[in-house]
Write a protein that binds this DNA or RNA. Sequence first.
DNA 1: GAACTATACGGAAAGGCTTTCCGGTTATGC
DNA 2: GCATAACCGGAAAGCCTTTCCGTATAGTTC
Lengths: 201, 201
Amino acid sequence: MTEKTGPPGAPRRMRADAQRNVDALIKAARAVFDTSGVDAPAKEIADLAGVGVGTLYRHFPLRSDLVKAVVESGIDACAAAGPQLSAVHEPGEALAEWLRQYTEFLGTKRGLAPALHSGDPAYEALPGYFLEKVGPALTALLDTAAADGAVRDDVSAHDLLYAIANLCMPVPGEGPEYNQRMVALLIDGLRTPHQGVSSGD
Amino acid sequence: MTEKTGPPGAPRRMRADAQRNVDALIKAARAVFDTSGVDAPAKEIADLAGVGVGTLYRHFPLRSDLVKAVVESGIDACAAAGPQLSAVHEPGEALAEWLRQYTEFLGTKRGLAPALHSGDPAYEALPGYFLEKVGPALTALLDTAAADGAVRDDVSAHDLLYAIANLCMPVPGEGPEYNQRMVALLIDGLRTPHQGVSSGD
DNA sequence: GAACTATACGGAAAGGCTTTCCGGTTATGC
DNA sequence: GCATAACCGGAAAGCCTTTCCGTATAGTTC
């Protein structure tokens, strides 16, 4: 991230038009990513945002920084939903529903998941951010559900977050429902009391 | 694929040196992909194979064609292991072990899985090829296991193949064991008799 | 409200990678 | 051994990201 509203005591403040452009760029990027995928040329994004490429790169030195920014905004939204759900539903339900939403977020932004998993070191920090943001929420959901006996207790939030992120990778002939279905399958596994792969019939 | 040993009645035969170069290129590509990842410059591969880039592109017009060729050879190896395993182990075991090997294949070639799932239309045909090659073997394993009551019957070989391929995506801080563990979790889900995500207690 | 300065802007240039093209080379058939 | 057509290598073209720099403008001071 570049420079949001200055932290207390920060010597520099971002110029208003700059901030405006940053916002416009993130918004444009989100739109273009949806339309043309994350590999769309930077110029397309700059054009949509009504700025030059120079401006884009001023704020997001690496192309991947822009992707990161877009993802982070999505993550924040996800994180917010956690406590909310657990307030309304019972533990098992809350967990399942939260995972469903999470799956949807990742599945819808086609092309995002592949980029995140492209091995580009730029994205390595992202899951950490993700974990930091939603980890506590998910951990809480998991703990409650586990205490309730609804799920096994040997799978961490970390495990689950990554595994689901992987299961959300688009599959050529299939739509997001496929991903949902596979996540559901994984969750059924989660509900299995510790079977182990080769512990027999 | 380009032009293997001519099909019966094919009017053209590939020149000997051309065939040699094709082989060298695939071999070189496999090596380079292991070393520098699938995004390594084409020149690196051409150099290792001892040919010019022109030659590389003559045989593999798109960069992705080379990746495809490498993957296909890996797929063939996997396919061969299927019947062999089911001959030696009992159904459930055979399935689990096969999936384990499959996971290993995908997990080891880091960078390959991301490329395959990059959304590049060039790779869309690949899973089809995969399915065609190992689908029958896996289907057989699944059917036997299902008849045995060891696994549920509403998940197809197709579903599983893709889902596992996704779960094999590398995760920054983790090694292949992580992927194995998550695949195991999915398989536990497979062993659950049809629970459904939100039909819980 | 006008002038000044630092910050930000836009687009052109640079650099790198894939893909195309073409003159030279080499295998193959006579 | 010669003719011919397939093939080779590397240089050129094209596209994209990233850098650079002269110009415009927000914010500040008088």
